[in-house]
Amino acid sequence: MTTTTATRPRRSQADRSAATRAKVLAAARDVLCSQGYSGATMLVIRDAAGMSLGAIQHQFPTKAKLMAAVAAEFAAYRTRIYAEAIRAGATPRQAMENLIDANYRMVSRPEMAAVLEIHLARRNDPDLDQEVGPSARRFDRRVRLWGHMILRAAGIDNDEAYQTLQLLNNAVTRGLTVEYIRDPNMALIERSVAVWKKQMLDLVFGP
């Protein structure tokens, strides 16, 4: 009886590179969550990823570039989720409510805590700020435009009021992320979000 051994096709260089990149980003995110930005050194991330420092630096030559990639990946994910949430709204109020709900579901994600660490570190790290700043501003502009689009669809044209609400909403989101890190009581956070969401929707669209 003749037996044959099936051989799996070798992965392409692009596939191997993508797998390495994903592994490094996941390790960096986990270290940021557990040890904060100062603890997320390239050596610690190397150990968490289980690969050589050279392999990591081939993908991300500096810590700032690695942190920027972590932030950009999460921004891309949030962009997709928010766009889907808005499209699912049958009315402007429903679209805004869906957007708010999608945003607050991010609070419990490890990426949210990781990116918060990155943005806080930008204050004292010019290289990090230079790497992260452009994509962060693009993401903020996109969310702001979505908000304006929803309001105009409802016949509301008050950019100043919306900018104020967006700032407050960002502050609440980041604050709840910190609270979740301290005490991951999602039931309490959901009750708090329900109160804040009603306040926002009533302010914008009326009771």
Rank of each mutant, 00 (worst) to 15 (best):
E73W: 00
G206Y: 02
Y162F: 15
G155L: 01
A69Y: 01
A27P: 02
G36P: 00
R191H: 11
T62H: 07
D157Y: 08
Q94M: 09
R182P: 07
Y104F: 15
V178Q: 13
D140G: 15
A171E: 10
I45D: 01
V44G: 06
L120R: 11
Q94V: 10
D101Q: 09
M186T: 14
I45Q: 02
T164V: 15
W196S: 12
N170E: 15
I156A: 07
T5R: 14
F139R: 06
D159N: 13
S52K: 03
R87Y: 04
N185R: 10
N124A: 13
Q199R: 13
N170K: 14
R109G: 09
D15R: 11
M186R: 15
E84I: 08
R144T: 15
R21N: 06
R182N: 15
V132H: 01
T4M: 09
A49I: 00
L66V: 03
Y77W: 00
Q166L: 14
L201R: 05
A76Y: 00
R21L: 03
A75Q: 09
T79G: 10
L116S: 11
V115N: 04
L201S: 03
D202T: 11
L151W: 01
I45C: 04
I81R: 12
V143G: 05
P184V: 06
G36M: 00
R191M: 09
N98F: 00
A85Y: 01
L151R: 02
K198A: 13
E97T: 12
V204F: 00
D183V: 10
E160N: 15
I189H: 07
F205C: 05
M112Y: 07
I189M: 07
L99W: 02
Q57A: 10
Q35T: 12
V178T: 13
S135T: 12
N158L: 07
G133V: 03
D15P: 05
R78V: 08
N169W: 03
N169S: 13
I100T: 03
